[in-house]
């Protein structure tokens, strides 16, 4: 299996960074070949086309980077603190580019690519369900949990777009204010 001589995930790690930094449309297959050192034939053999690489890269991003951030929502403790920690985990500079790859790719492509639209929808729905769970665990009535969760997803979209241009203290304050308004707690 000659085409498996390279490591699939290593290629996808590169793809995440390239599509994120250069945008999907701004990153040619030639750039991928150059940066991964894997030839075009092998890339196409494994992923079919550039879109195939994109879909697989989103999946890897979810597994490697998001799942452990999503796990924060399962932690015990003051719910507002847990939520803040969750939002901020996407903005830290430590493991990968600050922000969210799903929001980035969704912003660029969800209007024109049905599959990306579905992937974005599914991703935000999973998050929404985790919000409902944490609210239920904190004894919010179910109906209220469902409503609040939608607005917590809204705050996620905002914190992974608007907050990208914030300083650390601005984003801290913005997210805290957002949580306070959603929960009706005045700071």
């Amino acid at each position: 299996m000659r085409y498996k001589e390279y490591n699939t995930n290593r290629v996808l790690e590169q793809a995440i960074r390239l599509f994120w930094q250069n945008s999907f449309m701004g990153c040619s297959i030639n750039t991928l070949v150059e940066k991964t050192g894997v030839n075009r034939f092998s890339l196409y053999h494994e992923f079919e086309n550039k879109e195939g690489i994109l879909y697989a890269s989103l999946k890897l991003y979810k597994e490697r980077y998001c799942n452990r951030k999503f796990d924060i929502l399962k932690e015990e403790g003051d719910i507002q603190k847990v939520l803040k920690k969750f939002y901020l985990s996407f903005l830290q500079n430590d493991d990968i580019i600050p922000g969210c790859y799903f929001i980035h790719i969704g912003t660029e492509l969800a209007d024109s690519d049905e599959k990306i639209k579905g992937i974005l929808e599914e991703y935000l729905l999973e998050m929404e369900e985790l919000f409902v769970d944490i609210l239920n665990r904190n004894e919010y009535p179910n109906e209220e949990s469902v409503t609040i969760s939608k607005h917590l997803v809204g705050l996620f979209c905002t914190s992974t777009s608007f907050c990208l241009i914030h300083s650390e203290s601005q984003r801290d304050q913005y997210i805290e204010n957002g949580i306070n308004v959603i929960f009706g707690t005045n700071g």
Binding site: G106, T107, A110, D111, L120, L124, L155, C157
Partner: peptide, 9 residues
């Protein structure tokens, strides 16, 4: 910002 994502889905 949130509407800019939500209108897509």
């Amino acid at each position: 910002f949130s509407l800019s994502i939500f209108y897509k889905i």
